[in-house]
Each structure stands twice: as C-alpha cells, then as structure tokens.
C-alpha cells in the first residue's frame, strides 16, 4: 500500500514536470512565432524584418512582451467587466489545454522507470482535441460581446459561425483517418505510422481538408475574418489593450503551434522518422531524436501558416461560408465514402 502511494507521487511529479515543460515550450514557441512571423513577412516583402533588438532581432519578443506589460489597462466604461476579463483568459486557457494529448515523443527511461512523453494517454485523444477546440470560440465571443462595440460584436458573431462551420468539415475529414487507424488515441496513430507509411500517403484529400480547416479554426489569414483590420478595425480585440490583448494574440500563436503539432502527429508521423528503429541507439537517444523530428515538422507547418498569411488575401464572408459548406463538407463526405469503400475492398481480399 505504501509502495503504491509512493509510486503515485512519483507519477504525479512526472506529470507535473511534463506539463510544465510542455507549457513552457508552447509559450516559448508562441513567443518566437511572433518573431518568425515578422521575419517571414519581411523576407517575403524583400525586407529584413525585426533586426534591432539583439542579434537578428532575437530579443524582439521580449521587448514586445515588456511593452505589452507596461501599457495602460483600459476597460471600456459600458462593458461587462467580468466577461471582458474572462474572454482573453478563456482564449489562453483553451489554447494551452490542447497540448495535453499530443505525444511529444516516445518513452524516456530515467532510473529504470519509463516515462511517456504524453501528458494524458486517453483513448479519446482526437475527440478531446475537438472538445477543447470547440470551446476556443468562447474566448472570441465573450470578449467581442463584452467590449460593447459593434465591430467587436460583428467579429464575435463571424468567429462563432466560422469556427462551428469549419469544425464539421474538420471532423468529417478526421473520421476517414480514424477509420484507417482504428484508434482515437494519438499515440496509437503515431505508432502505426512509425511502422508503416505516413498517413498523408493514404489520406491526401483528408489532409488538405484538415489543413484548410486548421487555418479557419485558428482564424488565420485567409480566414481571419474575426480580425479583418480593413473592415472591423481589428475585430474582437478592438477594445483590448495591454496584456489582455497580448493574451489574445498569444492564444492565436499557441493555437497555431498546437494545430501544427496535431497535423504532424496525425498525417506526418509525429515523432517518428524514417529509419528510426534501425539506428541501433539507446532508447533515450532515439526518443530525443524523435522529439527533434517532431519539432522540425512543427516548425515546417508554422512556416506554412506564415507563408500562406503573406501570400493569400482574405476571403469574403460569403466565400468563406461557401467554401466551408459547399466545398469542404461534400469533399469530406466523399473522402469518407472512398476510404470506407477501400477498407472494405481490402478486407475482402
């Protein structure tokens, strides 16, 4: 009994350390995504991007963060104070919660104990992500409504309908993947790809739909109708200042990071890389290499997010809805049908 309790405490400490690491990593990556975004924007527009604060402008995120902390906090006079503060907090909380089910690596062996680099190994990982992502809209809605500003309200309503619409196509595109893998646990999905081909080979159409939906769910350009500077003056965070604005901006980058990790895990093999099992190295080294591989994939996806942002102009709202309902959902259904048919055909043989 005592042994049992002692073991549980160690397990708890493991998990707490892991959660702290993942949170710190998400925040760090989000910080440097802002830097990366501005660098990529600069390069694409034949400029240098930030290059004053520190070498290559690497201290720019710290300077920006410091600035946001010291700016004046403004709460509009006629706003709902509680909801106004709840909005950005919720956006940040939800963004940080998603990382719990993503397998960041295989197994580390420390002192004879095996530590899985996944915070929560639940058998409904994909559904959990859906649940959390569907809550992400509350941050936008509450913030936009509580600001008591018509532009914010419009952005909130746009955001809500956009996210709900694209969640459908996203779910349908994932169902095809789940039919293939037969598991909702992200770790199982990654392990299957480790011993076979990556899922992108089986599900190119599904991946494309998922990618477009991921852009829409993160409200990134070309689907950033919730911000739409040219028509809504910045949208749902129009009335926000100081670190509350920072939270909203940060949440967007964390969402990008997590959806990159998710796409890498679901379609591009996660922490596995070709020749992973034939290296002949110790488990820990292979695990760390695997984490490196996952990180490289994530950075590639983050670059894609930025690259698209500085290439494609924003959709009009009716075009957005048309794409979601008239193109992506039928395509996803079609993809599901084809996948199901092929699986049946293969089982018949």
């Amino acid at each position: 009994m005592i042994m049992q309790i002692a073991f549980d405490y160690i397990f708890l400490i493991d998990k707490i350390v892991l959660i702290a690491c993942v949170l710190a990593l998400s925040l760090l990556v989000a910080m440097y995504s802002t830097w990366g975004e501005r660098k990529v924007a600069g390069w694409i527009q034949d400029r240098y991007g930030p290059n004053r604060a520190g070498p290559l402008g690497l201290l720019q995120p710290l300077a920006d963060g410091g600035k946001l902390f010291f700016k004046e906090e403004i709460i509009p006079a006629n706003s709902n104070r509680f909801l106004f503060i709840l909005g950005p907090s919720l956006a940040m909380l939800v963004a940080c919660m998603t990382s719990a089910v993503i397998p960041w690596g295989d197994i580390l062996e420390i002192g004879g104990r095996k530590i899985s680099l996944q915070i929560a190994e639940v058998n409904i990982g994909v559904l959990y992500i859906f649940g959390v992502v569907s809550l992400g809209v509350y941050g936008i809605m509450l913030g936009g409504w509580a600001s008591n500003n018509k532009f914010s309200l419009l952005a909130a309503v746009r955001g809500a309908s956009q996210i709900i619409s694209y969640e459908l196509a996203m779910g349908l595109s994932l169902i095809a993947l789940v039919m293939l893998s037969g598991s909702l646990n992200l770790k199982d999905i990654v392990e299957q790809q480790r011993h076979g081909l990556w899922n992108i080979c089986y599900q190119p159409l599904g991946f494309l739909i998922f990618l477009v939906c991921a852009f829409a769910e993160c409200t990134r350009t070309p689907f950033d109708l919730t911000e739409a500077d040219s028509e809504l003056n910045g949208g749902y965070h129009l009335e926000y200042s100081s670190m509350k604005l920072g939270f909203y901006l940060f949440a967007e980058y964390i969402n990008m990071f997590i959806s990159s990790a998710l796409m890498a895990s679901l379609y591009f093999g996660g922490y596995s890389f070709p020749g992973m099992d034939s290296l002949g190295l110790s488990t820990n080294v292979v695990t760390m290499l695997g984490f490196g591989a996952l990180f490289i994939k994530i950075i590639a996806f983050l670059f894609l997010f930025m690259w698209v942002r500085w290439t494609i102009p924003r959709f009009r709202y009716d075009q957005l809805m048309k794409l979601g309902w008239n193109m992506l959902i039928p395509l996803a259904l079609f993809n599901m049908l084809i996948t199901g048919g092929l699986i049946l055909w293969q089982q018949g043989h």
Binding site: F130, G131, S134, L135, V137, Y138, M141, W145, L153, A156, V157, A160, S161, I164, E167
Partner: peptide, 13 residues
C-alpha cells in the same frame, strides 16, 4: 457546450 450553447449565445448577443 461547443456547438449548441454557442448558437444560444449567438442569438442572445
């Protein structure tokens, strides 16, 4: 929580 209540909130707003 994710879909139906969002629509409720949507209407009430």
């Amino acid at each position: 929580a994710g879909a139906i209540m969002v629509l409720f909130l949507f209407v009430i707003m």
